[in-house]
Design a protein around this nucleic acid. Structure first.
Lengths: 360, 360
DNA sequence: CTGTTAGCGCCTTCAG
DNA sequence: CTGAAGGCGCTAACAG
């Protein structure tokens, strides 16, 4: 592998001059420039090796994104894709590269965060936030965390989860619903520790949820219900893991068994809502006439579902853009909470009267 | 930023020993190890800086993927996503990172290829293959090209485009079709050079298409038609750019105008086929009773389309896996052509009789 | 076990 | 305009 020094030697100039030929050609006499270029071509040298340059420059022009899953998650998950679209925009604008780092296991994630050749890091969709945040801090690179908080000195970009949950409840209460059931997220990590944890939960669990998103949304549901004089502790809560289709289906079935009297189901993810719809179809329950369902997040599948689902939409692309900006445009520690909005489609309607329910 | 040398000095050991404490702790006496670790913690040193390590090691544990578009393309395009899912699998298995390199403009792509901090490169979905291939060669990194050929010394992964096109024609001929129209791809690059080029093409164009995929598929169509005693030069060919929805719609409209007598339309991409369906809907043309349509590639949208589209499916995920393997498992230059298959759905049927056509 | 030495490949002062 | 020198941060071979 020929390197700059070889070219310089062969051309009878110092390495410094050879370097200038490529990086600041104006500083080199035309004649010398030609000669060096010719030798370079002859030797098959076509410019600086990025590794050497990176060490010297101390900058890489790349940002890394870490997620708590296999790398495939970046391309599978519609929500993540929206986020990455936003990140991509900013990277394109700044001529930066994106490095995808797997966090399939905590060890992998740790290795990835420690070793990523990047100028900044985005920590997205993590279960064990504390540990990874700690490691990211140690690397002394700018980093942003998404969907959770990691202290005042760490930039974070979140959405107003609590408000979103409130909006869902208010919408349904406005339609006349009084009997709810909740399909809640559980983290992958908690699920790994205790697979039995998919299923009904008790009251204590609700206030101690480890995953910030879950905790906030539960609080939002509770507040929304309280506004209507209702108590969340009277409503069945079933939890199902993120990203595990089979378990989610099971959880949906349990939910129907445990809450036969509910007229509305609120959820915390698009996938969960779709699972509820599927289970309702199987049981011959008509949505929205017999049962209303509200999803969370907005992905294309919710629109093409039958019926199209009412949901709490969040600005995922914008989240990505902001994360990119924080890293590439070097803002100081920064905390953003983005607004969410209710998107009404056809999965929510007034509850059936008790008479109707008896008939049905 | 404290570095290894600082720790070593402060702990009163040589840098080599300090390095050993982190990389081969067995070689260091426990007592010294403790002391060095303590100092490291105190100084906030938590392991080697990846930049220094990378230069030293000469290896990065990362592969780069270059595409002829903005970075967002990696997350937008369903075909690309399938491919990346395959790449991801292999990277996960080898603990490698994925670097996404934009080729929005040829200059960007060139910079990206030259500067990417990776051990190997995948060149995917490129228009100007020759130039970029040349640059990739200069970097003397292992690389693979996708969907085109770059000479015997460059690994390439392709599909049997010609056979796919033949299958499409045979399927339709088998149903009784004799009058075809073709919606062909044009490269982004050609389109940039001459936007007017979206539209009908003449005979010469067909055999000189710059984009290998286009050329091969046209050959396949020609062969399939020849098998049935038909001549491709009797069939209208309209070209539309890749990834440009608006232009594609226009091209579809032109196609209908130019080929009112066609009973079947073959295309070279899922997007194009969907545009044809849209235009048919607009004109009140019934698919498949009045007109059959065959797509190329298989993406979810084809299944949920109305009607679901018959298509030539290709193993995109497998392409990604193979590309990953070539780079990460260092096979010698290698040429693969993957098989395609006909997936029959509801957009193809026997042609209407002339009598029916008159009525309709 | 530990220290010394020698780079990995590059760029950029600083002198001349 | 050009050359010499130093150093980015790290690891591995070698010698003790």
């Amino acid at each position: 592998m020929t390197k700059l020094a070889d070219v310089a030697r062969r051309a009878g100039v110092s390495q410094g001059t050879a370097s200038n030929v490529f990086n600041r050609p104006a500083l080199v006499r035309a004649e010398v420039r030609e000669r060096v270029s010719a030798i370079a071509r002859e030797l098959g040298y076509f410019g600086a090796d990025p590794k050497g340059r990176a060490l010297r420059a101390g900058k890489l022009n790349a940002i890394g994104v870490v997620t708590a899953d296999r790398l495939g998650y970046f391309f599978d998950d519609p929500q993540m894709r929206q986020f990455m679209t936003g990140v991509s925009e900013i990277c394109d604008a700044n001529n930066a590269t994106i490095s995808l780092v797997s966090g399939a296991s905590i060890e992998t994630a740790e290795l990835g965060v420690k070793g990523a050749l990047v100028d900044g890091l985005i920590l997205h969709c993590l279960d064990d936030t504390a540990r990874l945040t700690e490691i990211a801090k140690q690397r002394r690179l700018p980093f942003v965390v998404i969907d959770f908080d990691a202290g005042a000195d760490v930039s974070s970009i979140r959405i107003d989860d609590r408000e979103g949950a409130r909006l869902a409840i208010r919408h349904l209460v406005g339609l006349g619903h009084r009997r709810f059931a909740i399909l809640s997220l559980i983290t992958q990590e908690a699920y790994r520790d205790d697979p039995a944890s998919a299923g009904p939960v008790d009251r204590d669990w609700r206030t101690s949820a480890r995953f910030a998103v879950t905790r906030e949304r539960l609080l939002g549901f509770a507040e929304g219900l309280a506004e209507a004089g209702l108590d969340i502790d009277d409503m069945p809560i079933i939890q199902a893991p993120f990203k595990d289709a089979e378990r989610t289906d099971t959880a949906a079935a349990i939910l129907f068994d445990q809450a036969p009297q509910a007229t509305a189901i609120v959820t915390m993810s698009a996938l969960h809502a779709l699972a509820v719809v599927k289970e309702a179809h199987r049981r011959g329950i008509d949505i929205p006439r017999a049962l209303s369902v509200v999803a969370f997040d907005d992905v294309p599948a919710l629109e093409t579902s039958d019926p199209p689902l009412t949901t709490i939409a969040q600005p995922s692309v914008e989240k990505g853009r902001l994360a990119g900006r924080v890293l590439l445009e070097g803002t100081a520690p920064w905390h953003v909470s983005l607004p969410v909005s209710l998107v009404v489609r056809q999965s929510s309607a007034p509850p059936p009267s008790d008479a109707q329910r008896k008939k049905g």
